[in-house]
């Protein structure tokens, strides 16, 4: 998977980053889009955005990533941002069991507001802090399996699996899209979501390449 040039892409996939406050969503994103990590990144209020275009085979896929605030109280606001998302990384901090214990609630919230066929990956972040681990890998893996989620443990700090996590989600979306395209006789009518916020209105050509699952 290589980097495509920023403005030259065939597909736009909206991906949301969700999970409790302080689990490292913003750092995962900055590691993936800018290869940066900050020990003291600022609290996210509301939502922030980043993009990165990657090559999947011959197709350039632009990941449009919505980094949402983790605060419980903000849930009513941020859940609106799930609309039209075709991928999600549900992040917890593997050194804080509480952030894992509420994963089910996050999942429900996500399915209530996002596309039904959204690709979701459960991400246990901070794998560099193995001495402080509170969530056993197998437990989280089992939960993911039982709920039909992808699963990876990452470290935004030392970069472990960060690329792989985003890459896997994007590939999975891409596979679904390709399959759908084969099944669809009117490929040109396929759009990402249903023309809501986050949608690149684009030209006819680009619109034709935006996908809903």
């Amino acid at each position: 998977m290589g980097n495509g040039s920023e403005e030259d892409y065939n597909f736009v996939f909206k991906v949301v980053l969700i999970g409790e406050s302080g689990v490292g969503k913003t750092n995962l994103l900055s590691r993936f889009t800018r290869n940066e990590f900050s020990h003291d990144s600022r609290t996210t209020i509301g939502v922030e955005f980043s993009t990165r275009t990657v090559m999947l085979g011959t197709a350039a896929v632009k990941a449009q990533i919505w980094d949402t605030a983790g605060l419980e109280r903000y849930r009513a606001i941020t859940s609106a941002y799930y609309r039209g998302a075709v991928g999600a990384l549900l992040v917890f901090d593997l050194t804080k069991h509480q952030t894992y214990a509420v994963v089910e609630r996050w999942l429900k919230e996500l399915y209530d507001h996002a596309e039904a066929t959204i690709v979701v990956m459960l991400v246990g972040n901070k794998s560099d802090l193995s001495q402080a681990r509170e969530v056993p890998t197998e437990e989280a893996r089992m939960f993911a399996e039982n709920n039909g989620l992808l699963f990876l443990e990452t470290s935004a700090l030392d970069s472990t699996n960060v690329e792989l996590a985003f890459e896997t989600v994007l590939k999975e979306i891409f596979a679904k899209v390709s399959k759908q395209r084969q099944n669809s006789t009117r490929t040109n009518a396929i759009t990402l979501g249903s023309g809501q916020a986050g949608q690149e209105p684009g030209t006819g050509e680009k619109r034709a390449c935006c996908i809903s699952l």
């Binding site: 509301g46 939502v47 916020a197 209105p201």
Partner: peptide, 21 residues
């Protein structure tokens, strides 16, 4: 409007922190 950019996307951060962030 054409781009579906709603004010909550930028106003929430501005209003919550009174622009200090």
């Amino acid at each position: 409007k054409k781009n579906n950019l709603t004010p909550d996307i930028y106003l929430i951060d501005w209003i919550f922190t009174l622009y200090s962030k």
